[in-house]
């Protein structure tokens, strides 16, 4: 059993890190918004899903116009990512404006319900458009980097490298932005104390809008990458994935940006491990389909025993 486990370990790690990168970048959106508003943006999974559909629509469009063969792949990918990020960023900002801002002073449960409502609306709108344009709400897109590299027992899609590269760039970029720039510092100031931040002539609403834009753009870009990596998408992919990314954010300490990245990778690797080894390890009693249970067992365990997460502040500072 051990030799077999070791044998499949490299594949598990590669697949786990890739999935982890997806969780991590989506988790950033949850953690950024929570950090600033103490709100769980339940609709964030649907923003990710919208990004996947926007990217797929662009690529299908380019393909049927016959342009895809003529343009450099990397250029197409970057353009698709840029458009999807811009649109999902605006979508996130719009959601904040209409569904959360009017409820800023309402009890905590109210904006959460509003968020769930937004989720349903987005699922239905995307489903409607997909069925109208393609006749089916399950859509298989155009894969840009479909080649596979075979390294002994290890199979790596070229797209895996794209996903990892893009995710790392986005995470490093966000980290630098938040730590080093004027607006990034403003974001951290607003997250800690809105009233006092306003006294520093910071337009708090603008910082909140920027936070939604950035978190949503990252989620949307990840949607594009996800569609490229896994091929087929439907309007409901944001639900489970959103829950898992949220789990990753809680695992890393919700509100903590680096924690969310770490939590994403941990969850991705654990999940791939469970999916590959659960069957062999339990003699077939538990199969790969139990991998999701693991993610949510982790969520429950963290909430029970370490609700501040692995890197959260033990006591939330409130001045």
């Amino acid at each position: 059993m051990i030799p077999q486990l070791l044998h499949s370990l490299p594949q598990v790690l590669v697949d786990g890190v890739t999935l982890g990168a997806v969780y991590a970048t989506v988790a950033l959106g949850y953690t950024m918004v929570y950090g600033i508003l103490e709100l769980i943006n339940f609709a964030h999974g649907e923003i990710f899903m919208s990004g996947a559909f926007i990217g797929t629509a662009i690529l299908i469009g380019l393909n049927s116009a016959g342009w895809l063969g003529h343009l450099p792949k990397l250029l197409v990918l970057l353009l698709t990512l840029a458009v999807a990020m811009g649109l999902t960023g605006l979508l996130g900002m719009g959601i904040e404006r209409v569904a959360y801002r009017p409820l800023r002073n309402a009890p905590r449960l109210i904006p959460l319900i509003s968020a769930i409502g937004v989720s349903f609306v987005l699922q239905d709108v995307v489903r409607f458009i997909a069925e109208w344009r393609t006749g089916n709400y399950i859509v298989t897109g155009v894969t840009l980097y479909g080649a596979e590299l075979n390294l002994g027992s290890l199979t790596v899609k070229t797209n895996t490298l794209i996903v990892l590269g893009a995710a790392v760039l986005m995470m490093a970029g966000l980290d630098l932005f938040v730590r080093r720039t004027r607006w990034g510092t403003a974001m951290r100031a607003v997250a800690q104390d809105k009233d006092t931040a306003a006294l520093m002539s910071i337009n708090v609403n603008r910082v909140i809008a920027l936070t939604f834009f950035m978190g949503s753009a990252l989620g949307g870009a990840t949607g594009v990458l996800f569609a490229q990596q896994y091929g087929t998408i439907d309007p409901y992919i944001g639900f489970i994935l959103g829950l898992k990314a949220f789990t990753a954010a809680v695992l890393g300490g919700i509100g903590n940006i680096r924690g969310a990245m770490f939590g994403g990778f941990v969850l991705g690797i654990l999940e791939m491990f469970a999916s590959a080894e659960l069957g062999p390890l339990t003699g077939g009693v538990l199969g790969a389909e139990y991998k999701d249970v693991f993610a949510f067992l982790i969520l429950i365990a963290v909430l029970l025993f370490k609700p501040e997460g692995l890197f959260g502040q033990a006591v939330k500072e409130k001045v």
Binding site: R182, A189, A197, E317
Partner: peptide, 22 residues
């Protein structure tokens, strides 16, 4: 403000910089 309300999670330098946000 009353009670100082410094940004405790930011460094001293960042607190001063945020004071000059405009």
């Amino acid at each position: 403000p009353e009670g100082r309300r410094i940004f405790s999670r930011l460094t001293v330098k960042e607190n001063l910089e945020i004071g000059a946000f405009s």
